[in-house]
Simulated scan of single mutants.
Amino acid sequence: MHNTHQIVVIGGGYTGMFSAIRLAHRTRRLNVQTTLVNPSSRFTERLRMHQIAAGQRLADHQIPDLLAGTGVTFVQGAATAIDTDARRVVVDDGAATLDYDTLVYAVGSSTDTGKVPGADIHAFTLNSPQIADRFATRLTEVAKANGAVTVCGGGLTGIEAAAEIAESHPGLNVTLISLDEPATMMGGKARAYLMRAIERLGITLKVGAKVTKVLPDAVELEGGELLHSSACLWTTGVKVSPLAADAGIAVDERGLILVDATLRSTSHPEIHAIGDAAAVRLAWGQIHGTCQSGMPTAQYTADAIARRLRGKSVKPFRFGYFHQPVSLGRRDAVIQFTKADDTPGRWYLTGPAAVAYKETVSGSPLTTYRLSKRMNVTTIVSKGGRASRKPAA
């Protein structure tokens, strides 16, 4: 018999990695063992996936290397089931099982290609470095043949991808298809700058268009219009893993785990949900799945677990947004600074200063992991001010 408290973290993305490393540091003097489970041994920098899609080579960061010296055990495999009664995680359909006393659920979201016919067959996504790399290979072929590329989805991911592609392959016919006006969450001046960059890069913007089908060489729009597309990149729609719902953990209509004010499952308090796996609601609204909000949930949860293991009380999670950083290729960017609820503030940044700012943001998680092995590094820039002190409605 042993009394070691077993913590299992499912998911080695931005939030899962940070929570595991910070947990190891915060519980280093306690009888605790932390285990991280992830399908791949490579750490995926999702903030840079559009760079891979455009054909750029990124550093290969291995999870065991990032965990070296922390004491965290890494298990490579996919968590395929959770037995909440036995408190056990099943890995790779039974190839291994992991018992837990505390579970940190950090299974991220992915782009949903299942709602539009043909998207799952003929479109590429940024769901993994491997898929993005295959798109980059196809992109090179399309550029040589003077073909056309469509990016479906006018959110910030689609904008960044279209800009990166257009800059990396000048002269290529790139069309960004968006149901709504792009970047409406930004202030007027920042958005105007972004729209000028899209025009400067030669990107064709098709707004108010709904894609109804993806074909091998075209996308079909509502009304029957066909747009030639030698390669289609799908960046719209989000889905989450059914793992939590299948385990009987309380989730919302999208499959996100319902959590209390301390990010614990409302149905299973021994389970903590972080990042875009959790339905986190604050007084000013529900946070959306970004690295900006995900890293603070990981930090908070690691600290909360450590405090509870020491018999201490835990204050509710507080967070506020402070920026919307958008790269526009490697040589341009725009940063919209925001209020806590992610609505645009007065200030914004453009040009070389914005490029440097965005690069710092994209590289900050890896820096945070390295520093967190030996000190408590904060990722919470804003706690949301007065609004987040109130309980959620």
Rank of each mutant, 00 (worst) to 15 (best):
D60H: 08
I63V: 10
P64T: 03
L66V: 07
T70R: 01
T70L: 06
T70P: 01
G71L: 00
V72M: 03
T73M: 09
T73W: 01
F74C: 01
F74N: 03
V75R: 10
Q76R: 11
Q76F: 01
Q76D: 00
A79N: 03
T80E: 06
T80G: 13
I82P: 06
I82D: 10
D85M: 05
A86V: 13
R87A: 14
R87M: 09
V90Q: 15
V90D: 13
V90N: 12
D92M: 12
D92Q: 12
A96L: 14
D101N: 14
D101K: 13
D101G: 15
G108C: 02
S109R: 11
S110D: 03
T111F: 13
G114N: 07
G114H: 08
K115H: 13
G118D: 10
A119W: 07
D120R: 14
F124R: 04
L126T: 06
N127Y: 05
S128N: 03
Q130L: 04
Q130A: 09
I131E: 11
R134E: 11
R134G: 00
F135Y: 13
R138F: 03
N146F: 05
N146K: 15
A148Q: 12
A148G: 02
V149D: 04
V149W: 03
C152G: 05
G153P: 11
G154D: 08
G155H: 12
L156E: 06
T157G: 04
A162H: 07
A163R: 04
A163N: 09
